[in-house]
Design a protein around this nucleic acid. Structure first.
Lengths: 268, 268
DNA sequence: GAGTCGGCTTGATCAGGATCAAAAGACGCC
DNA sequence: GGCGTCTTTTGATCCTGATCAAGCCGACTC
């Protein structure tokens, strides 16, 4: 089965979609065909560990992009699930809600990360994904990704790893929410952000927060005032310099120590 | 590729395993071959939604079981990852830990649930799984499961749903940890347990807890004293009857209401 | 440049749950 | 059956972070 016929069969199965993905003229398609193999994110994103040939296959199904302005919603809970999204640029938050009005930011996502996997289980998204700045995502039609995984098992294997990594990440958040105090949570948050930015070639010690104090608080299970106070405390202690959304980490080691010292087990 | 050759090729790739899975004499194999299709859990477990033929394929790779006594560890963080485990009987807890000594029960698992997916991302388990009562699991060699998914894409698709469901479940725990008060957390915990037991044909209103107050507390981000007090409070209010590990839900509706009324959004 | 608005900081007070402590109840082991 | 250990309950007190409240800063509009 050629990649083209694969795409067409998968496409025809999607006719009548109530929320059609934007389509591109044939002219643009060629250009996009080379997308993954030339993308500066290929070392972080879905193509990681794939051979040149396998990436070419992947490019056959990732032929649509979607741009979002700051504040726009990529998908929301209840939307039918069809695609995963690989973030090409920008910054997102994922927000889950209970049947009653409670909600929580379950995570922040940046370039190279794959989002939307919450939707697979019920063929419906179970949380919202909102752009925190102007962003662009590559649309990865999920049925095509599964079809392709049969042709290129390495891709399937890699996808399993990505999903598993998400599960492990969430374990970390659970540990944070269940056993850390406010300042430890913020320290963990900053270190995590720093490390992910560094992995993408940005400064590990100086960055601009894309989210508000309230959103940080929602993610960390704290109120915005507590987040603000913890920022101020870190600054007074000389560990960081904060000015609004601009953060500079002055003493990474002390931030780390803050985490490893708390050490209060729930079992011993 | 026949199912047998599939099994053998995958098996040979695993020679030299430092922790060999128990193997069975050929005589027992035949008996076990019929396992999945006759298992009373086939409506809850991995075979859900598979055709008769596909289940037969699945049975080719699920030919080992492992028994654990109460308190025994199925796997622990750092162990090499090779297999997933489908719980055939019994009850497990999963425990994650930070580099320093903090730990947290990330979930409780019962018959029909698939565990071990945390290990896929780094080919190493990242949390511990411990039997809370005498239990039995079916060993699902992961590389074989992936190979089989190529032959039977429906199985792969189902597996994706299982992983996605785990992600969604964890979102729920994050919501609980991040935005609920102590009594709401316990109510949510009891309702969740009740619902899962009911799905397996057990009573939804009367059951025996397999875990201690401390383990419940660790999972809910509470201290054991707080868990105990919340139990007492529910009992005083007439919603449940508790005697040690024996729980009887007397007024399910009031328990539910306890959840839907708290309703304190972090955003609005 | 004045005015407005959303986001942030800081202070004062309050309360939910942690902590410390003690005793009672269950359970396994000789 | 008696002993020792683990688990649970309950009480008293403390502390962290929530809540309430006020003012500030910066960005944007007009």
């Amino acid at each position: 089965m050629s990649a083209d016929s694969l795409r067409n069969s998968a496409l025809s199965a999607r006719i009548g979609s109530p929320v059609p993905e934007p389509t591109l003229a044939a002219g643009n398609l060629v250009k996009l065909k080379m997308a993954c193999s030339h993308c500066h994110l290929r070392e972080v994103c879905l193509p990681v560990g794939l051979t040149r040939e396998q990436i070419t296959l992947l490019e056959q199904i990732v032929y649509t992009r979607r741009r979002l302005k700051k504040g726009e919603t990529l998908y929301r809970a209840g939307d039918p699930f069809r695609s995963l999204y690989a973030i090409r640029s920008g910054f997102f938050k994922a927000r889950a809600a209970t049947p009653d009005g409670r909600d929580q930011v379950t995570g922040f996502q940046m370039a190279g990360e794959l989002i939307g996997m919450d939707g697979i289980s019920h063929e419906t998204h179970t949380c919202d994904s909102i752009a925190l700045e102007d962003s662009e995502v590559c649309v990865v039609p999920f049925n095509m990704l599964e079809d392709l995984s049969v042709q290129a098992p390495a891709l399937g294997h890699h996808f399993h790893k990505v999903m598993s990594r998400e599960i492990v990440r969430e374990h970390g958040v659970m540990l944070l929410l269940g056993s850390m105090r406010a300042e430890e949570r913020l320290a963990a948050f900053l270190l995590n952000l720093s490390q992910r930015l560094a992995a993408r070639g940005f400064s590990a010690t100086e960055f601009v927060l894309r989210m508000t104090r309230e959103e940080i608080g929602s993610h960390l299970g704290l109120k915005l005032e507590t987040v603000s106070r913890a920022f101020s405390k870190f600054q007074d202690d000389g560990m960081i310099a904060v000015k609004q959304k601009h953060v500079q980490i002055l003493e990474m080691e002390r931030l780390r120590k803050l985490l490893t010292n708390g050490s209060r087990s729930t079992h011993d």
